[in-house]
């Protein structure tokens, strides 16, 4: 009986001792990541719910506050992130084919794009700080609206949502670094590249969150009457 034989066999990365087949293990890992991503959706969902409620309560303030964000930089960052998703896909593809050098190249490219995104984000945050748009600053002031309270709410949500997103990016960068080291150590092969695969899922998810954040935070004043 194969399962009995297996119970006493040495465990490998591709086949941990609790699984019967490598395929079962890969399925389990992928399902686990999907469920984790559902959790993440609910996590961001709470923020999106708060955003929706306050935006409908203070539509004009949100539009004014939104227009103070730098759309050009935001759009550039969106492109950078989309590019990083592309290179991530290529890394997974290289993993499927077992080409370690290609994996490393594409992971490093993804890493660079991710870092560019974070750098630009940091620049934007600093800009907000200089403009006194950061809630908690004593000198907080948003021009163009007398309602400073709701303006603070917008920027609180802005910082909370982009901050949470950036935190996920930082975690993603950590994962990429780990993957690069592991690939160099010849851990992955065409038979076993599950970590690259499910990290890809995670990276795309973080990307998709940004695709929602960008219009909601940067572009909402476009369709309001001036």
């Amino acid at each position: 009986m194969s399962s009995e034989a297996h119970a006493h066999a040495e465990e490998t990365l591709a086949l941990r001792e609790q699984f019967d087949t490598a395929e079962q293990q890969k399925d389990a890992s992928t399902l686990g990541m999907w469920i984790f991503l559902i959790t993440e959706i609910m996590f961001f969902g709470g923020m999106f719910a708060a955003y929706t409620i306050y935006r409908s309560a203070y539509p004009t303030v949100f539009a004014v506050a939104s227009s103070s964000l730098n759309v050009t930089i935001g759009a550039i960052n969106t492109c950078v992130l989309l590019l990083s998703s592309f290179t991530m896909v290529m890394a997974v593809r290289a993993g499927q084919m077992g080409k370690r050098n290609m994996i490393i190249i594409f992971l490093i490219l993804t890493l660079i794009f991710g870092c560019i995104f974070l750098g630009v984000k940091a620049y934007e945050w600093n800009e907000k700080y200089v403009e006194h748009h950061m809630p908690g600053q004593a000198a907080f002031h948003l021009e163009g609206t007398p309602l400073q309270g709701p303006a603070k709410i917008f920027f609180s949500l802005y910082f909370a949502m982009t901050g949470l997103h950036a935190l996920h990016m930082v975690v993603g960068v950590g994962i990429l670094l780990t993957l690069i080291v592991q690939t160099r150590a010849k851990k992955f092969s065409a038979e076993y590249f599950t970590p690259i695969d499910i990290s890809g899922l995670y990276w795309h998810f973080v990307d998709v969150i940004w695709i929602f954040l960008f219009p909601l935070l940067y572009l909402i004043d476009r369709h309001l009457p001036k």
Partner: peptide
């Protein structure tokens, strides 16, 4: 920590 008004009505929160 930051005294923002998500929940505090004095700052427009709910």
């Amino acid at each position: 920590v930051f005294h923002i008004g998500i929940f505090d009505p004095a700052l427009g929160g709910d």
